[in-house]
Write a protein that binds this DNA or RNA. Structure first.
Lengths: 205, 205
DNA sequence: CAGATATGGTAATAGGCGTTACCAGTCAAG
DNA sequence: CTTGACTGGTAACGCCTATTACCATATCTG
C-alpha cells in the first residue's frame, strides 16, 4: 500500500528470505548450506553476504519473521469472552492450525535444535509464541472466574494446561515426522475433546 | 574371530558410550565432533571406529540406550488402580521426573533435531516413550471407567491429554534452556494442578 | 553515446571434520 | 631375550562449506 514500487533490493531480499525459510526450516541450521539457499533463490552468494552479512544473521532474520507471522494470528482480542466454550473452541482451533502449519513446525524444530547457539532468539520466540498465548488465555480465564463461570485455583496454570493439551502428543508426532498433520475433522475432534475436559475441569459444580 | 578379552573391550565400550552420551546429548549430532568425544573419553579415534564403525552407529547406540533407560522407569503395573487420584499423582511425578532429567531432555532435543535423518530411531523412541506411557495410562482409565469412577468419551484421548499437560510449557521452557528444571516443590504443585483439573474433567458429576 | 559506478557471478581461500593409512609401543609365546 | 602379532595414537587424505577477492556486466549520469 505504502510501498507502491518494491525496489530491486527489497525484492531480492524477499526472495532470499523466502528461499532461506524453505531450506532452513526443512533441513535445520547446520545442514543448510549457503549454496542450497542460492540454488533455490537464484542469484549468487554475494547477495546474501551484502544483504545479511553472514549465515547467522540470515538465520535469525528468517526465524524471527516466521515466528512473528505465526504470532500475528494469535490475537484473541475480538473473541466474545462471554461464551467461554466457544472462546476456547475458537482459540483452540487457531492454536492447532498454527502449530500444525509447516512453517511453525519448522520453527519449532530449529528453535529446539539450535537453542543453545541462539538463546536470544529462543527467548523472543517463546515470549511472543507459547508464552503470549498462555498469558492472554489466562486473562480471559481471570475474567471468567470474576464472573463466577469457572472456579479454579490458578488461572495461569490452567491456561498453561490448555495450551499444552492443544500442543500435545499429536504435535510431537507431527514434529518428528511420525505422522502427517491432522485433517480438519481430526483437528475438530481433538479440540472438542480438549475443550470438554478443560471446561469440566475448571467449571464450578 | 572370537573376542579373547571381553573385560577390556567392554570397559572401553562403556567409557566411549558415556562420553558420547554427554557430548551428543548436550551439543547435538552435527555439532559433535569425534575429536570432542575422544577428548572426553581418552584414548584415540581408532577406538571408536573399531568399536562402532562410524559416527551414525555410535549415535544410534547412545540414543537407544538412554531412551530405554528412561522407559524402564515408566512401568505402572504395580500402581494401585483403585485410587485413581493417587495413581495419577504417582504417575505424574514419575513422568515429570523423567522428562526433566538431563538425559531425556538431551534425547528429546536430539530426536527432534535429527528426526528426518534417523526415522527408525524416532519411531522406536516414540513407541517406547510417550506412546507407551499414554497407552498404559489409557488402560488404567478404561478400568476406572468400567468401575464407574470416571465418565469420559475417549480414554485414549484423555490419556494423551494427561501426558501432554505433564509435559507442557514447563518442559518446553527447560528444553530450550529458558529456565532450569523445577525443584521438587514446583513439580509437586504442577502435578497436583494437573491431576486436579484432569480428575474434575473426567469424573462423573 | 560514453564513461563511471554499482552490482552480480566465478573461483579461490581457509578451516573443520569424518575417515583411514601408517607407525610405535606392548604383551605373549618360544 | 627375541620375535611376532596386535592394539592404540598421530598424521594425512578428501570432501565440504562459510567467507571473500576479483572480474564481468549492467545501470546511471553528462
Amino acid at each position: 500500500m505504502v510501498d507502491a514500487k518494491p525496489s530491486r533490493g527489497v525484492q531480492r531480499r524477499e526472495a532470499l528470505l523466502q528461499a532461506a525459510t524453505d531450506v532452513f526450516l526443512e533441513q535445520g541450521y547446520a545442514a543448510t548450506s549457503i549454496d542450497a539457499i542460492i540454488e533455490r533463490a537464484g542469484g549468487s552468494k554475494r547477495n546474501i553476504y551484502s544483504e545479511f552479512g553472514n549465515k547467522e544473521n540470515l538465520f535469525t532474520a528468517i526465524v524471527a519473521a516466521n515466528a512473528a507471522k505465526a504470532v500475528a494470528a494469535l490475537a484473541i482480542e475480538e473473541i466474545d469472552a462471554r461464551d467461554l466454550r466457544s472462546t476456547l473452541t475458537v482459540f483452540g482451533h487457531r492454536l492447532m492450525d498454527i502449530y500444525m502449519s509447516p512453517s511453525l513446525l519448522g520453527v519449532y524444530r530449529v528453535i529446539i535444535s539450535e537453542s543453545q547457539r541462539f538463546p536470544a532468539l529462543v527467548k523472543k520466540f517463546y515470549n511472543q509464541g507459547p508464552g503470549r498465548a498462555s498469558a492472554r488465555l489466562a486473562e480471559v480465564l481471570e475474567q471468567a472466574r470474576a464472573r463466577g463461570d469457572i472456579e479454579t485455583a490458578d488461572c495461569v496454570k490452567a491456561a498453561d494446561h490448555f495450551v499444552s493439551m492443544i500442543r500435545g502428543n499429536l504435535h510431537l508426532q507431527v514434529l518428528v515426522g511420525l505422522r502427517s498433520p491432522p485433517r480438519a475433522k481430526e483437528v475438530a475432534e481433538m479440540v472438542e475433546s480438549v475443550v470438554e475436559l478443560f471446561l469440566r475441569g475448571v467449571t464450578a459444580r
